[in-house]
């Protein structure tokens, strides 16, 4: 069974059919690029797959589970993640907090009201490890908005998920509790990253 299985996906804005009966299946370990001219509907497709945008019809199965109708955050927790074309960060947070927030999403409940989160070693250590891996550990305490790298698209990737085994840009290599793989899509993927086992 494919890791990602898309059947009959549709979306129209009025009379304009942006996604017209799209079928797609992706096996584990595969890396794909979706290309097309401006307005072809690449971003819309990514938005539909990630749950950011609704779909008119079709099914999106990820790792055997139906994702259609699930909100974005639920799909993320199931293991589907996306990156953004335009850098998307939490500008008021420090670089470390940006990554630690992502670690926090995976570890334990966030309905904890009393213990200071800044003192959670487990979150910070994993986040620091991720920052060190991408070579920006020295910026950990800097506010993300002022970090010069915030201007570059590259900044995005450590904050997406703390990569553990490699630094593939578009997927999260962090093994999910259920042992699932994350897969994400992008308009492009650099050839240098194609070697990754986890993409």
């Amino acid at each position: 069974m494919s890791l990602l299985d898309v059947r009959g996906l549709r979306k129209a804005y009025g009379a304009l059919k942006v996604t017209d009966d799209l079928n797609l299946s992706v096996e584990k370990g595969e890396l794909h690029a979706i290309i097309g001219p401006n307005g072809a509907g690449k971003s819309t497709l990514i938005a539909q797959l990630s749950g950011q945008a609704g779909s008119d019809a079709g099914s999106v199965r990820f790792d055997g589970a139906e994702m259609m109708g699930q909100p974005m955050h639920a799909r993320v927790r199931a293991g589907m993640s996306r990156s953004f074309q335009i850098t998307s960060i939490l500008p008021g947070f420090t670089v470390l907090e940006n990554v630690a927030a992502a670690v926090q999403a995976r570890r334990g409940s966030s309905f904890r009201f009393f213990a200071p989160v800044a003192g959670e070693r487990a979150l910070n250590d994993t986040a620091m490890e991720a920052l060190a891996r991408v070579g920006i550990a020295e910026r950990a305490a800097m506010r993300a908005a002022v970090s010069a790298m915030a201007k570059s698209g590259n900044w995005n990737w450590p904050s997406r998920w703390p990569p553990r085994r490699n630094s593939c840009s578009w997927t999260s290599p962090l093994p999910a509790p259920a042992g699932r793989r994350r897969i994400a899509w992008s308009r492009s993927c650099a050839a240098s990253r194609a070697r990754s086992r986890w993409c």
Binding site: S50, Q52, P71, M72, H73, V76, R77, S81, R82, F84, S88, I89, L90, P91, G92, F93, A101, A102, A105, R106, R160, W161
Partner: peptide, 14 residues
């Protein structure tokens, strides 16, 4: 605070 800063980002991390 994260949801104030960037709600889409927070959804994207789960």
């Amino acid at each position: 605070t994260g949801a104030r800063e960037n709600p889409l980002r927070m959804q994207a991390i789960g």
